[in-house]
Amino acid sequence: MTIDEIIDFVASLDGVLTLRPGPGDGSPEIAWGDSFFYYSPSGVVPTTTQPFATIVTKNYPGDEKSGLDRPEAYRVNIAAGRELFIRWTGHSPRETDAGVDFAVTDAVLAHPVYGTAGWLAVVNPGPRTGETVYELLRVAYDRARSRHERRADS
């Protein structure tokens, strides 16, 4: 499973805004090469919500546990919500993941920083997690779309 395959899948969903920061677009350099997915049928970056998924290709300050400084390493981050978080990790998002190797590849884990918010993460999805990643991305997309629609109805 490649980064481009994941981006193509998410971008094919109706109303998705995909941001791919790079030189010259005004984004911070640390974000260059990463991808951020929002539900935004207007095509405008929402100011009141976070992306429903991201792909990061490097360590960020305070977020080094996944070891993304290795060649070819990347991590898919998914706002899966509490129910799926518990199903995949076996515990509440409020519990810690002491002893977990967040650098393991092709495994669904709590996000090393945003797990407490119900985010899941997969470093280098492969044969074991590929279909699961697509399913989790679809759920995160559906959740983001539902939130958007509820706000629009308010």
Rank of each mutant, 00 (worst) to 15 (best):
R75C: 03
H148V: 00
G126W: 06
A11G: 05
T2M: 10
P93V: 02
G15S: 02
T54D: 10
F37R: 01
A98C: 00
R143S: 09
G26T: 13
R143L: 12
P127K: 10
T57I: 11
D153A: 15
E29Q: 14
A80P: 00
D101Q: 09
V45F: 03
S146W: 11
A107V: 14
A73V: 10
G90Y: 02
V122W: 07
A80Y: 01
T2L: 10
S154K: 13
Y60P: 03
G118F: 04
Y134R: 15
S66I: 01
T132F: 02
M1G: 10
I6P: 07
F36E: 02
H91Y: 09
Y114V: 02
T48D: 15
D153V: 08
P127L: 13
T105C: 09
V139P: 01
T54Y: 05
S66F: 07
L19A: 05
S92H: 14
F52N: 02
P21D: 02
S66W: 06
N59P: 08
A140G: 09
R82C: 07
I7M: 02
R70A: 13
L68N: 08
A11R: 00
P46K: 12
A121N: 04
G22E: 01
R70S: 12
H111M: 10
Y38Q: 06
H148Q: 07
D106V: 05
V139Q: 12
E5V: 01
D142I: 01
L136H: 06
A73F: 14
K65M: 08
V56I: 15
F85C: 05
D142F: 08
F37Q: 06
S27E: 00
N124F: 07
D8L: 05
Y141I: 07
A117Y: 13
T49R: 15
P93L: 09
V139R: 11
A103G: 10
W32K: 08
R150G: 04
P112E: 09
I86C: 11
R70K: 14
Y74D: 00
I78C: 04
D69S: 08
R138S: 13
D69F: 07
A80N: 00
I30T: 06
V45G: 04
I7N: 01
R128G: 01
F9W: 00
G115S: 02
S27L: 03
I7W: 05
